[in-house]
Design a protein around this nucleic acid. Structure first.
Length: 275
DNA sequence: CAATAGCCCTGGTGGC
DNA sequence: TGCCACCAGGGCTATT
């Protein structure tokens, strides 16, 4: 379940290995994961192109090509992008393989096949609606306490749903949303518009802190996440509440509770996190 | 506008 | 040991 820190680690681990290399061929093993254009055109749009730059927006990876076109990849739940220098590593669940000019490969693997892949011309970003409507990301200039305060004020949804909605903040997923609320001592069912000034400040700091910590620890590996070199993350050891149902809260020793909010498993400390 | 359910999917797990 | 229901949940759509 790669969220912003994990996708950023993937970007960082892949960029030096991919930038300025040419895609010489590809194996499309599961065509339905390519959402645009059709298989044939996807192939012809990419083969022969040079990867100029590897960018990220929220949980989207954006590979900029030498003609200005864009390869957009969203890993969803179990997607992985792996750089392989030679042919002796076989990755399970490979769905798409790019062969690069120096004999190396970029492998897209995905057990549950929920990931989405697009090849877009410069003026075609609108085809990825989630990318167009993406809110500012944690740690960025646009993500300010003022932005958070005014956005919360206008929203009547509960905090957990607010944090997961990518149009408000780009990049948070289930793990870091739960962790940010735990860090800020805010209840996941509290209404966004009911958060007061002091709580906004706490939430703002918490969001940036958990994302920065996730990146510093190389991401969170629960099951599937690996970086571009196949390395696991270490942040799972630092989590306050996620995946710790029934375990003592690290602050007050009360057992961590798990509930469903908007269809998502939600972990919190019923004693530290108040409504 | 918000909440909810359903959909896409596979593999791991827990119960019997 | 085998079988099966259930869960993991990101993002989109349809419905209430």
């Amino acid at each position: 379940m790669p969220e912003m820190p994990e996708v950023e680690m993937i970007r960082r681990s892949l960029a030096p290995n991919l930038e300025n290399k040419q895609i010489v061929d590809m194996d499309i093993l599961l065509p339905r994961q390519i959402k645009w254009p059709d298989t044939e055109e996807f192939h012809s749009m990419l083969v022969g192109r040079m990867i100029k730059k590897m960018n990220r927006r929220g949980k989207y990876l954006l590979l900029e090509l030498d003609n200005g076109n864009l390869l957009v990849i969203h890993l969803r739940m179990t997607g992985q992008l792996l750089y392989r220098e030679n042919l002796d590593t076989q990755d399970g669940h490979s769905r798409l393989i790019f062969h690069l000019s120096d004999g190396s490969r970029l492998v897209y693997a995905d057990t549950r096949t929920l990931g989405t892949i697009y090849a877009l011309k410069q003026d075609e970003i609108w085809r990825v609606s989630g990318l167009c409507s993406l809110g500012p990301e944690p740690l960025s200039e646009d993500f300010t306490p003022e932005y958070l305060a005014s956005t919360l004020e206008k929203c009547r949804a509960v905090l957990k749903s607010f944090l997961l909605n990518q149009k408000y903040i780009g990049g948070l997923g289930n793990i870091y949303a739960d962790e940010a609320l735990a860090e800020a001592c805010l209840h996941p069912l509290k209404r966004a518009c009911d958060v007061n000034g002091q709580e906004v400040q706490r939430l703002y700091t918490a969001i940036n802190r958990v994302i920065a910590a996730g990146i510093a620890d190389g991401g969170t590996t629960f099951r599937d996440y690996r970086d571009g070199n196949g390395q696991r993350g270490r942040h799972q050891e630092q989590l306050l509440v996620y995946g710790r149902t029934g375990c003592p809260c690290k602050r007050c020793q009360s057992p961590v509770q798990k509930i469903q909010v908007g269809g998502r498993g939600t972990h919190f400390c019923p004693s530290c996190q108040v409504l």
